[in-house]
Amino acid sequence: MRASKQEQTGTAGANEVAANFERIGWGVARNSEHDLGADLFLMVRDHRLVDLGVVVGAQVKAGPSFFREPKRDHDGAVVGWWFREPDRDHFDWWLAHRLRHFIVLHDLGTRTSYWAPITKETVESTGVGAKVFVPAANVVDAGCADALFADALRSCLIWGV
């Protein structure tokens, strides 16, 4: 038997993204069974590593194909990437889900993970499908941990928890 390149890339990406979240102190549960659009479930922890009882989902997309649609500033520098789906099925599922979800694009070459929340405000219709912008500044690392933490906690405000 021979493994597919897609399976290898996806698994490596999910494992590296999980490690990046663990490096900022969050708990990670891999969703290897029943994955309908969430590769990881993330337990949000504060800087003291106190688990806050907040769980968010993450859909991981790894490999160069997910970085083929960059958005550039007026100087030509990449400020992020568009992630799109040809239909709305995944976006509608993420938006309707009880848990807040993030899309995480992972660059296997640099081992860098970039995140964006999936919300009514961030998802843009393309007419048939949908897309969301993933900022290059949103890295899953210590430098962005506070912003990621704050965004994850917005799920509590949304649901009134």
Rank of each mutant, 00 (worst) to 15 (best):
R84V: 01
D107M: 09
V79S: 08
F102V: 10
A96I: 01
G80M: 13
L95Y: 04
W115V: 09
E85G: 04
W115S: 10
A130D: 13
W81K: 11
D107L: 05
S125I: 00
H106M: 12
G109T: 10
P117D: 08
S113F: 08
R84P: 00
H106K: 07
D92C: 04
S125M: 01
W93A: 01
G127D: 03
S113M: 06
K120Q: 15
V79A: 05
D89F: 02
I118R: 08
V123G: 00
E121N: 07
W115G: 12
W115Y: 15
K120H: 13
K120R: 13
L105E: 07
G129N: 03
H101W: 00
P117A: 15
D92M: 05
T119M: 03
H90A: 09
S125F: 01
L95I: 04
R88V: 12
E121Q: 14
I118T: 11
E121Y: 03
F91E: 04
T110R: 15
H97F: 15
G80H: 14
P86W: 00
H97N: 15
I118Q: 10
R98E: 07
S125D: 14
D107K: 05
L105C: 07
T110G: 06
R111K: 13
V104T: 10
H106W: 02
T122W: 03
E124T: 00
L108T: 04
T119N: 02
D89E: 13
D87L: 01
L105F: 06
I118F: 11
F102S: 12
F91L: 08
D92V: 04
L108S: 09
T112I: 14
D89K: 14
G80S: 14
V79P: 07
Y114Q: 12
R100N: 03
H97G: 09
E85I: 01
